[in-house]
Nucleic acid binder design. Structure first.
Lengths: 334, 334
DNA sequence: CAACTTTGCGCTATCGTTAGCACAGTTGCT
DNA sequence: AGCAACTGTGCTAACGATAGCGCAAAGTTG
């Protein structure tokens, strides 16, 4: 790989001159600059980022830690972040944890060791102590999920209120035997959501005695398996409230497979608003979260806080509200 | 940020000793090693990757350049790559080009400047000269698409044969007035696919006079708009062959919106095999590509070629075949 | 014309880490 | 006992880029 020194020797000038010519230093003659630019282009010189960084410069790399990139939720986050960063010349170091805290710990360490400028993370349910300690070395922001009482910037959706909204919709249609299928209780977002589920019952003064909470996973498989179990019950629920993006896929998959007639036999509210929600049967009623807006505002804020390094006294918190998109998957009960 | 020097001073030893203790150098006493490890842990020391790299070490970062991470095709690639790399301690620097050659050029330059160990790229339709030149500085592999005659490792699907397969299916059902909706002709993959479309007609000795090729985009919007146009034709096609993943979404979206009865009014073959293909109407007949396998074999091969740096005399090429998944979206024409 | 400023460039130290060499102290062998 | 081999550690020189200082030449002012 060609170095600045080689360019300098080729031109018979000093390394400093080459460096200055390429870094828009004003105290260099236009002629010299042109010659240097031409030569470095001809020789295929590409600056050595790590070397510059060592000289006190800052990295243009931001770590982005996500549980799963195939989940459209997270893919959207990656896309939005990328767009934000692109304008400022920042790049993404992508880490996928699969919700494994050990993978998470390793990646956080490696990112800090790579001296990224900062980290944006959707944490696992219960990160290691070590992860939190390492994270403290760099500016970082949390997305969607939050690590316990950890103080940091945070951007998320209103987990509590969105499920409350969906559940209220079902309650207003007369449903009481509602099954909620959501993530494991250890996940802060998941526990907020189930709290919203309960609150919806309380709001209308209804008993949640017939309701059913099935917590445990955020995967398609979990949603699928849970629906199969629910369908085998002697007294089936009249409605299903999905509490996670991929759970929704699994639920729809199982219902399609078992050819359950929606909404006549069962009402469904999906979580997140995938494109196919419009096409599925008579349309899937869903909770829509403006993930893109959330991620973009996180990205912009993060970039801003990287540039403007003064110590802030309190963390930034941003809760994005969700809305319900009513389609054809919920029936009115008489 | 704590440096090895600070750890050394804290213990009253030399920097070398700290370095050796942490890098499993055998010629260091067990006692010293323990003290160093304890101290560096206590002080929160995290090694400086860039600095080590400067000393001749190699980066653990691999650039991954994709057109669009929200496309499940590419998301799957990212996921597979991540899994491959994770085992070997490599990480991903993700770049999203949105099929913009200028963005691509910038990102390639920045990745090389960050001294990534290598680059895996799904190139744009016609990358800049500059991009190709810069790319030559590092080991790299191309995925799915290929830059002109550029010599490099390449992993892709059989673009020609997959569309031929789907088209043959429609031809065998008696369709002749088939519309093919695919990417712009500049895209090598797109032109291969349209060639497969024509070949299918030739294979069965059918005239492609009634067929229609609409080339121009790989987005949902393009698929959507094209279907709307096709539906307005005086003599509608009897079948649509989708030539790109996101085109399929757009096509399905438009057909759902216009409430076209599938397959009675129109037959459809989708490209790629998204989860919702099973749920849409009576099921969407699709072309399935083992993207995960392709990406994994690319990832493994790439890691292998990074480790084993001997100059290879010829590039590695791998074509993954596609298969058709017949569901309920294609009718037999009498 | 002397003194001073400006312009354009070179030299050198430095960032954090590691490999190679040096060296003191210890052990083993004849 | 003398010498070699080994063990554990320190010192120093890089890696590539850049900021600060210095300095010569050219231009400017009184």
């Amino acid at each position: 790989m060609v170095t600045a020194r080689q360019v300098a020797e080729h031109l018979g000038v000093s390394v400093s001159t080459v460096g200055r010519a390429l870094s828009q230093d004003p105290r260099i003659s236009a002629d010299t600059r042109m010659r240097v630019v031409a030569a470095s282009h001809a020789l295929g010189y590409v600056e050595n980022g790590p070397a510059r960084m060592m000289r006190g410069g800052s990295s243009k790399l931001v770590g982005l830690i996500l549980p799963d990139i195939r989940n459209t939720f997270y893919a959207t986050i990656a896309q939005s972040m990328s767009q934000c960063f692109d304008k400022e010349g920042f790049h993404i170091a992508l880490s996928i944890t699969n919700d494994d805290r050990d993978v998470e710990a390793r990646h956080v360490k490696d990112l800090v060791s790579a001296r990224v400028a900062g980290i944006v993370i959707v944490p696992t349910a219960s990160p290691r102590r070590e992860t939190v300690a390492t994270l403290a070395n760099v500016p970082y922001a949390q997305l969607l999920r939050r690590i316990g009482m950890l103080q940091s910037d945070w951007f998320g959706i209103d987990d509590f209120d969105c499920i409350r909204l969906g559940t209220r919709h079902l309650l207003e249609l007369g449903h009481r035997r509602i099954a909620y299928i959501g993530g494991p209780a250890e996940l802060p977002t998941a526990s907020d959501r189930v709290a919203g589920f309960r609150k919806a019952f309380a709001d209308v003064g209804a008993s949640s005695g017939e309701a059913r909470e099935v917590l445990g996973g955020t995967t398609d498989e979990f949603g699928h398996a849970t629906v199969e179990k629910l369908l085998r019950l002697r007294t089936r629920p009249t409605a299903v409230m999905c509490g996670a993006v991929r759970v929704t896929s699994g639920v729809v998959d199982a219902l399609s497979e078992k050819q359950v007639v929606i909404p006549d036999e069962l009402s469904v509210v999906g979580f997140g608003d995938p494109p196919w929600a419009r096409w599925w049967g008579k349309g899937l009623t869903t909770l829509r979260m403006p993930v893109q807006e959330m991620a973009t505002s996180c990205g912009l804020w993060f970039l801003h806080s990287l540039r403007d390094k003064r110590v802030r006294t309190h963390e930034h918190r941003s809760i994005t509200p969700a809305s319900i998109v009513v389609r054809g998957s919920c029936a009115k009960l008489r």
